[in-house]
């Protein structure tokens, strides 16, 4: 352990002087990736950790062309339009149905009214029948 850290310190010095080769730098990278390091080497741990994340940095393929004609945006807007228009349609349909039911009820009431009035009418008209009968019987005598 002691030997190793001594060797690492030597490597670090050569790293700072830009004298290390690529495989030595890879060794340093591996060392700082795994080991718990001496606090005097905290900077190196941070630096190597950063260079590794920087290596992973990618040009996001989904943002390569931020053009107006993005298919996902188009699809999303179409979906929103469909859902809202369907909703509005359903709401209207519902409203229409309610109105129809109301109209039906009103018509039914109206018919009922007509029916009762008519019954009253026919009842009073039936007296006329008696009247005519009695009149004609008197006249025919």
């Amino acid at each position: 352990m002691r030997m190793e850290s001594k060797e690492i310190k030597k490597l670090i010095d050569r790293y700072l002087a830009a004298e290390t080769n690529l495989s030595e730098e890879e060794r340093l990278r591996a060392y700082f990736r795994s080991a718990k390091v001496d606090s005097s080497l905290n900077w190196a741990k941070m630096l190597f950790a950063y260079s590794e994340t920087a290596r992973e940095e990618q040009l996001d393929p989904s943002s390569v062309s931020p053009s107006m004609f993005d298919w996902r945006r188009v699809a999303a807007s179409v979906a929103i339009i469909c859902v809202t228009s369907f909703g509005v349609y359903r709401l209207q349909e519902n409203h229409q149905q309610k109105q129809m039911q109301l109209a039906y009820q009103q018509t039914k009431e109206a018919f009922n009214l007509i029916a009762t009035q008519m019954n009253k009418g026919t009842a009073s008209v039936s007296y006329l029948g008696y009247y005519e009968k009695s009149v004609s019987s008197l006249l025919n005598k």
């Binding site: 790293y15 700072l16 002087a17 830009a18 905290n42 900077w43 190196a44 941070m46 630096l47």
Partner: peptide, 11 residues
Amino acid sequence: SRARKRIKESL
């Protein structure tokens, strides 16, 4: 070398 040393010092 300058770049590495400079990063070390700042850190």
